[in-house]
Design a protein around this nucleic acid. Structure first.
Lengths: 217, 217
DNA sequence: AACAAAAATGACAAGGTTGTCACAACTTTG
DNA sequence: CAAAGTTGTGACAACCTTGTCATTTTTGTT
């Protein structure tokens, strides 16, 4: 939990801090992320960081909660009940994913790292919780969709969940590898994003979901 | 490349070195792996390591080549031409995978880390080559199987490759999470492995491949 | 304006890392 | 047996890391 000092900070300053720290933890694993690099980039004293957060882990946990909140805000407009089936909902979830990646690339990259690349023992417990939760949510989904008929009852729930998780991971990775460099370039040049690239991404997502559908139906 | 000194080392000593170093790099990412821990475990002097290898990267590259060679040795007995279709071959590839994991857990874990968890910039170029190669091999496979009829021609090759890669990754992860702790425990207690666990793994693999088949056919 | 409370500072300690190198110890060869 | 070649050693330099804390600066209140 950040201190009151941090929360009372001028918005401009606080946001600058969050952005720089987020970039550091998006670019490096927990162990190799450096508070020295953060303070150098921000031109602030080392002690300030420890007036805002008790330690490195505290900072990391805050950035994690912050990023998850941002993502949730982005996603929660979608309502499963408004979709005729699971798959169209799932499709839109990934379309929302790419817009989140465009609007908040640092959060997106940080969350991607946490989800799929982080191996530090100091944060392992917090990541496991995250993975377990995702698995639980998907399990409920799959069992519902078995009743609704979107997923074949003969497929073991556990297998279906693992299958969906792996393909989800894959789509996430696709964005990171194929589109993030493009997104970054475009942000630097302050150009609008090529809509055809987004369309290409959407088409890829649709293809993936189509394959998933065929596999699980 | 290791020095002649290392290659001329007594086999016992060399193997002990490889095993301990492999464990260190299997348990930690490149940046956080510690040569100090290795020498402490081996009870040798710091200078010895640098008489065997020019630097940390040199050691890492050797262990990578070593592990890849071990895996290749394990896999190469399989001949695609002896299988009626791609999927039965693919299935056996993963069955071989689990036996490799049982016989050489350190190599297996190290390669898994390189493939899916490593993000250090110092070794990034070497990992990329590996990923690109895997993608190339799968691309050739997929295009062949489209002709043979094992894969639907309407599915884009690129998508199919990505799909297969993600599921492969998933199966690999499954072993690491679900079975490796079991394997380690059994090795410590010097008990034979529970064959029912292996059968469970094989069944899971078969289920996955079945879903893949349905998706891509 | 004067005082108090809050925030920023950066030198510092304690610990970690890699790679070096002069020297000691061991092996092989002449 | 002795000399030459090979291998092992560990203190050391140089550089990094995190977290602390007495001190200064800034801010807010009376």
């Amino acid at each position: 939990m950040p201190t009151e000092t941090f929360l009372k900070l001028a918005e401009e300053k606080r946001n600058a801090f969050i952005e720089v720290a987020l970039k550091e933890f998006a670019d490096h694993n927990y162990d190799t992320a450096s508070i020295n690099r953060i303070i150098k980039e921000l031109n602030i004293a080392r002690g300030s960081v420890y007036q805002y957060f008790t330690d490195k882990l505290d900072l990391w946990l805050y950035l994690k909660a912050y990023s998850e909140q941002q993502k949730l805000k982005h996603i929660q407009s979608l309502d499963r009940n408004k979709y005729p089936d699971f798959w169209t909902y799932y499709e839109d979830l990934f379309i929302k994913g790419i817009t989140f990646d465009i609007e908040q690339p640092l959060c997106s990259r940080f969350l991607y790292r946490i989800g799929y690349k982080e191996t530090s023992k100091e944060v392992a417990e917090y990541i496991n919780n995250w993975q377990v939760k995702a698995r639980e949510i998907f399990t409920v989904w799959v069992e519902n969709e078995k009743i609704n008929g979107s997923i074949n009852k003969n497929v073991k729930t556990e297998t279906a969940v693992q299958f969906i998780l792996s393909v989800s991971s894959s789509i996430g990775g696709l964005v990171q590898n194929k589109f993030s460099s493009m997104i970054e370039n475009n942000l630097k040049k302050e150009k609008p994003l090529f809509t055809e690239s987004i369309d290409e991404y959407k088409a890829t997502v649709k293809e993936f979901i189509h394959l998933l559908k065929k596999a699980l139906l």
